[in-house]
Design a protein around this nucleic acid. Structure first.
Lengths: 353, 353
DNA sequence: CTGTTAGCGCGTTCAA
DNA sequence: TTGAACGCGCTAACAG
């Protein structure tokens, strides 16, 4: 169980090397005003003792730790993984260090509280700045640089990186209506999330742009999961005048639609067109490959870090894509094979009135 | 870009509240020897100023941060996600905080170095103890509690949590040979990893136990990925006397075998039995459901935390499952529908000699 | 009950 | 070129 008690400090090194602590400090920080042989002697002792300076003490003094904090709702979802991928890449490129904290373990009620306390925890002590992903909280008690990815609320005080959810959904609707669809079902995400609200707005606006009246029956409330989406799809497809296309607000939900279409013996895209959102890896592997919207999640992660590091350095944020404190990462429609134009649709049993 | 410079300290609170810093400290830490009205006054100021104590300073003084560090090779793999799930659960249960660090972004060469520096970084300053997952390094310069999950080397100095890889593979071989298979192909994992070596050993021992001579041609070197496994499977199934069963050293690899079997028009399990290792979620969803070995990865994560926290508290590790500094988490064979006994095999073209 | 004092381990002056 | 002294923000001991 091996548990040597004392943590070894700069003092131990100094004593053993027969120099003062400040000399050791100079060697550790690569100052050039130290005699060559002193450097070697100190380094030898450092190596022998396995000394490493304490982040806490160092950060406390120098007010710069070279560490970036990342606060995420979870680490298991595809979304978060992509964010982390982008963050990691950028952190490596900038030669910074990264510390991740997950707030998702707490019960729903406490998430905002947890987020706030973690911002406070990381901030100003061990971290130069913090990126918070899809925060529940709107206000953070920190005076250090902070960037938000996909805010779920209005957070005018902080710089945020967001995907153009509404525009992405709008592009889908334009595509679908262009294909001749007029009965388009929609499966929402978790409606408390901004992303979900914005995508729904895009759906409505798309309908509007095509001059199609909104039919509440065609909107089913999901929660971004495959299971719930399947329930929604079943409801939608049981409608008297059932939709010829279903727009699921994320790819996981679209997979639920695929599943139900299979159960009902509906061919995609001949009998039913399906569109998702996110462009997760599996989207291209589905049968048929899913048409969806790529929102470049990874890029959102790397952008957040890039911006944060600029803030840490005290640079002014320069970009043409920033307005109202928002960094918009444009989405892109990825057309694959899950949609057919109405003219190609199977001339099936004309259900409904 | 909102960037108030000064970080607010306990001093600011004390001054504004008209009390001393120690009183503020007492209130913050919930000491009971403070007057009710003083508490309220201080809390009001704390709230107003958005004050949060610095982890760095706090940890430096009290030598106890209540924070556990977790160092992982990556955060994207199924394995790591399961570990995190277990870790998260236990952290929440014990009311600790968690900080995750990923070493996987670096180039291969530097991983060990990175790991070591991160152990040093987290340790003794901002963390009470550290869990390192599948480390490349063998030696860490820390004198604080440290637990290793799935060591890839001999690390006799540290307590480690491991899955019984060899025994798991042995169980598979016993099952397969019991079904009458004698030509059993094997796809290895990344051979530099201990888990991979141990599983291979289990394969060999299983052959031995059944009195089947080892045939080098039946062992294909993979790397735990689906892509490479597919290449391996193609090679294996092109053998003159091709195997009647393939044991893939993880489920991702088994998926590669499924894929190739499909290409070759081989029915599973009628023409080919397949076994995996890991029991990932997708295993049960494959067609047919995959027989595999569950190694309870999540439990490894929670166990590591449990043990580490005991060490932090200075308790002696009490368990019957610990010997030689190793905590063994037993694996379990999960039999589904991807294997058939030889007597049920399609009486196909008898290839080979 | 509250304020004063003394460090925790480190980096950074300022002298020597 | 090196060492002594100070202070970062905080908690714990000791007074009052």
């Amino acid at each position: 169980m091996k548990r040597s008690q004392k943590t070894i400090t700069i003092q131990d090194v100094a004593r053993k090397a027969g120099v003062s602590v400040s000399t050791v400090s100079r060697v550790m920080n690569g100052k050039d005003d130290v005699a060559e042989e002193t450097i070697e002697k100190v380094q030898a002792v450092v190596h022998e003792l396995g000394y490493a300076s304490s982040l806490a003490a160092r950060g406390m003094r120098s007010h710069r730790t070279n560490v970036i904090g990342l606060i995420m709702p979870d680490v298991a979802s595809y979304y978060c993984q992509e964010i982390m991928r982008g963050v990691n890449r950028e952190i490596a490129r900038l030669d910074k260090d990264l510390i991740i904290y997950t707030s998702g373990v707490a019960e729903k009620e406490n998430i905002a509280q947890h987020e706030r306390s973690y911002v406070a925890l990381l901030n100003g002590s061990i971290t130069d700045g913090v990126v918070v992903v899809t925060p529940t909280a709107t206000q953070f008690s920190t005076h250090a640089p902070l960037v938000i990815v996909d805010p779920n609320n209005e957070t005018p005080d902080y710089l945020a990186v967001i995907a153009t959810n509404r525009e992405g959904a709008l592009a889908v609707m334009k595509y679908l209506t262009g294909l001749g669809h007029r009965r388009i079902g929609y499966i929402t995400g978790r409606m408390e999330l901004t992303s979900s609200k914005q995508r729904l707005q895009g759906y409505k606006d798309g309908l509007d742009a095509a001059g199609i009246p909104l039919d509440g029956d065609l909107i089913a409330v999901g929660d971004y999961t495959t299971e719930t989406a399947a329930v929604c799809a079943r409801k939608l497809l049981a409608l008297p005048d059932r939709p010829t296309a279903i727009f699921a607000s994320n790819d996981m939900s679209a997979m639920g639609v695929y599943q139900v279409a299979g159960e009902l013996g509906l061919q995609i895209p001949e009998d039913l067109s399906v569109v998702g959102f996110d462009n997760i890896r599996e989207a291209a592997l589905l049968n048929p490959p899913l048409t969806t919207v790529d929102q470049f999640i990874e890029k959102m992660g790397s952008t957040a870090i890039k911006v944060l590091v600029q803030m840490v350095k005290g640079e002014t944020i320069s970009s043409n894509s920033v307005e109202d404190n928002l960094f918009k990462i444009p989405t892109q429609l990825v057309i694959r094979e899950s949609c057919a134009s109405m003219s190609q649709h199977s001339p099936e049993q004309s259900t409904g009135s």
